[in-house]
């Protein structure tokens, strides 16, 4: 078994009993915090598919988080709380947005790709900011928690945690399968050597665009969860700073692996929460931590594990 897989199984095994541990410690609220970290782990995983495996640095990935959140928010505001409707709508909207913007963005390379994805992300952000029927810039409270065929999967913080964990595990398994399929190998191949892939008869564009769409769709699932977690939907989910934070999660965790982004997201959210409790000036130590982490570790958290082995 690969190191990445083993690390992931250990991670799941550690996460599983956490809520029980937290309530034994008399800190049940930490379960809520950890759930938020897991939601971002899903988002970071989706970004890693294009960033780590496909070498496409998207600086507008938060847009898909927002599309998912607004799909849940707008449908709930119109009385549709069923996930059986919300999820397909979120996936379809995210997929469509990804196909259209991806088809244009993928014409560019490198830094230009970063900037054009940023541009599309900002457009989505401003569009939602001007949607005054749904709160505009202020955002809106979620009219009702999402349900699943009448059941209430987000009813308690405990249930929410395990539903999120199960989704994370499922998406991890799905992406593991995708990256090891022929499709995944071609995608990784275009990252390593584009010309060679073209020479042996693959057109990278189609593969890249498909990966870009899958990635956006998975991120929208995290968006639906985030809307339910905060009970609130806001354009601030889609700002460029949030996209930057997601890149940080992936790179700090270890890009191009499926465990790295999960660890990175958990470490990122937990340290942000911890520092914010210590001081209102938490951005200073947080920024310093990011700088030092990148300068003195290579390959992210997972790389550090690997190095110690």
């Amino acid at each position: 078994m690969r190191l990445s897989d083993r690390a992931m199984l250990v991670t799941f095994a550690v996460l599983l009993p956490m809520p029980a541990l937290f309530s034994a410690m008399g800190e049940p609220f930490l379960t809520v915090v950890l759930t938020r970290a897991l939601i971002f782990a899903i988002a970071a995983l989706s970004l890693d598919l294009i960033l780590g495996f496909g070498a496409m640095v998207s600086f507008g990935h938060a847009a898909y988080l927002g599309i998912g959140a607004y799909a849940a928010g707008i449908l709930a505001a119109n009385g549709v709380t069923g996930l059986e409707v919300q999820l397909p709508v979120a996936l379809a909207a995210a997929g469509a947005f990804a196909l259209v913007t991806g088809a244009i963005s993928l014409r560019t390379r490198g830094v230009h790709f970063i900037m054009i994805t940023l541009a599309f992300g900002q457009m989505a952000y401003f569009l939602m900011s001007s949607l005054s029927a749904y709160g505009g810039d202020d955002g809106m409270a979620l009219a009702g928690r999402s349900t699943l065929f009448g059941a209430d999967p987000f009813g308690s913080s405990l249930r929410f945690f395990y539903v999120t964990l199960a989704l994370l595990a499922g998406i991890w398994a799905l992406l593991r399968a995708v990256t090891r399929s022929r499709f995944g190998r071609v995608l990784t191949g275009t990252r390593e050597n584009e010309t060679r892939m073209q020479a042996i008869g693959f057109s990278p564009f189609g593969y890249r665009l498909t990966a870009y769409a899958i990635s956006g769709m998975i991120a929208s699932v995290a968006g639906v969860l985030l809307a339910n977690h905060a009970a609130f939907v806001s354009p601030s989910y889609m700002g460029w700073a949030r996209s930057g934070e997601m890149i940080a999660m992936v790179v700090l965790g270890g890009m191009g692996t499926l465990t790295g982004p999960v660890l990175g997201a958990i470490a990122f959210i937990l340290s942000e929460e911890a520092l914010a409790r210590l001081t209102t000036h938490w951005r200073l130590p947080f920024g310093a931590a990011v700088v030092l982490a990148v300068l003195f570790t290579r390959g992210g958290l997972l790389g550090a594990l690997r190095g110690r082995r």
Binding site: E27, P28, F29, V32, V33, R36, D138, G139, L226, A230, A231, F232, S234, S236, Y237, A276, T280
Partner: peptide, 20 residues
Amino acid sequence: VDDELKPDVAVNRARELVES
């Protein structure tokens, strides 16, 4: 507590005020 002027952060901190 600081709400950071972010509604989603504020909701979390508010829940923490209640639950913790």
